[in-house]
């Protein structure tokens, strides 16, 4: 088995040390960083697909994402030397469960998937004040704001963030994506969100689309 195959397996198994060692070995052999990145991206896509099919569960996906994060720390300098970057690495996503909503697992799964796909994430946690979301998004220079709501009674919190962005004249600065069990495309349209995703894997696609459009 080649080292790249080994790396693919190590990332999928969430073996952080093995993954990092393999990246160093592969780079030392003269393989370009962007080729290594392709291997990693392929592995994490396979993990996402396996989770989508429920061949694996959240803990396995979290372990693979952790391995990906650590490996990227090893790979990043080499990527910069090659003058390579990805759209994802230049984009920052701010994530929060909105005011009054204490549920986080849906948001956390989205974060895991986005992180695994190379996005920088700023996680504000749950039950976050709407104005605070806007202020932190500004401070962190986020490209996208992701808002989760699991209750019908907390869905208005998603609207409130967008209303504040409008009132502060900041709406054009950020793309806003919403999600959560009771939300829908219709609700996203009604409140003026830029995107809605029914699950985590779709959230990655929607974020990618929004960033390419911005």
């Amino acid at each position: 088995m080649s080292l790249t195959n080994d790396l693919n397996s190590a990332v999928k198994e969430g073996n952080i040390d093995e993954s990092a060692n393999l990246v160093e070995k592969i780079l030392a052999q003269g393989t370009s960083a962007s080729e290594v990145l392709d291997v990693l991206t392929g592995a994490i896509r396979e993990v996402g697909d396996a989770f989508e099919r429920f061949d694996i569960f959240l803990p396995e996906m979290m372990m693979a994402a952790d391995a990906m994060i650590e490996v990227m720390k090893v790979l990043d300098p080499a990527l910069k030397e090659e003058g390579k970057g990805t759209i994802e690495s230049s984009a920052k996503i701010l994530m929060a469960s909105v005011k009054g909503d204490i549920h986080e697992i849906g948001k956390n799964i989205v974060i895991t998937m986005l992180t695994a796909n190379g996005y920088a994430i700023f996680d504000m946690g749950a039950d976050v004040d709407s104005l605070e979301i806007v202020k932190i998004a500004e401070r962190e220079k986020a490209n996208v704001i992701g808002l989760s709501a699991l209750m019908t009674t907390t869905m208005p919190g998603q609207k409130e963030v967008i209303d504040i962005l409008n009132d502060m004249g900041l709406r054009d600065r950020f793309k806003v994506i919403i999600g959560g069990s009771p939300t829908s495309q219709e609700w996203a349209r009604e409140i003026g969100a830029d995107g809605w995703a029914k699950d985590a894997s779709e959230a990655v696609k929607v974020v990618e689309k929004l960033i390419r459009e911005s």
Binding site: K99, G100, D101, M151, T152, T153, T154, M155, P156, G157
Partner: peptide, 18 residues
């Protein structure tokens, strides 16, 4: 059953409407 609205306003968690 749970209420979606109160006097025509969508109920907002932790607010007077709730």
């Amino acid at each position: 059953p749970i209420l979606e609205h109160f006097f025509g306003t969508k109920i907002n968690s932790h607010s007077p409407s709730e």
